[in-house]
């Protein structure tokens, strides 16, 4: 207990702060490579949140998939396109301000609508084991077997599709 908060609460606070900070940096940094790296940091913070929520498997898969594969792909494309300049064209100030206002309004709406959520049925929760690989695997391969197979087909389609799109046309 530090200053009346438990360690978990402290961790939650720090991770939330960091993930929001890094999230903001993704949007505001001029250099796309920096953006990618900040987004990776954001993903690490979110993985930390998953660990706090006892979703170990998801946390690691999140890192492997997002940080290990998806963001590397982004880095690849940015580096290959040679977009890593700081002087990329910016939107006009007006459209930026409008974007900010729109985002703020959306936030207001969301916060307002979520305000009543204290009334949600809250079940006290002990040390849940649902995030463990075994339990998750059981659910995944019994209840969600069909979507799982569909997802594999989706991935295969994406694989073929991206190769077909990205391939240089042979003349």
């Amino acid at each position: 207990m530090l200053l009346g908060y438990t360690i978990t609460q402290w961790l939650f606070g720090i991770l939330s702060f960091l993930s929001i900070m890094f999230g903001l940096m993704v949007v505001f940094s001029r250099n796309p490579v920096n953006s990618v790296l900040y987004l990776v940091l954001t993903f690490f913070c979110i993985a930390g949140h998953y660990l706090l929520l006892n979703a170990q498997f998801l946390a690691v898969v999140h890192i492997v998939v997002y940080a290990g594969a998806i963001m590397v792909l982004f880095l690849f494309v940015i580096m290959l396109m040679d977009l890593n300049h700081d002087n990329e064209p910016q939107k006009t100030w007006i459209s930026k301000i409008i974007a900010g206002i729109a985002g703020g309004m959306l936030l207001c709406v969301l916060v307002g609508s979520l305000k009543g959520s204290e009334q949600l049925g809250i079940s006290q929760y002990g040390s849940s084991q649902i995030g463990m690989v075994k339990n998750l695997g059981k659910v995944l391969f019994s209840e969600f077997l069909f979507p799982f197979e569909i997802a594999s087909i989706l991935l295969l389609a994406a694989l073929v599709g991206s190769i077909m799109i990205g391939k240089k046309e042979i003349k």
Binding site: S19, I20, V26, V27, K96
Partner: peptide, 21 residues
């Protein structure tokens, strides 16, 4: 937290011109 993260993403979509961002 997720509302704020979502809004950050949304603002980014609106405010940036680089499609990768």
């Amino acid at each position: 937290l997720s509302a704020v993260l979502f809004i950050i993403g949304a603002v980014g979509v609106m405010a940036r011109r680089n499609s990768i961002i």
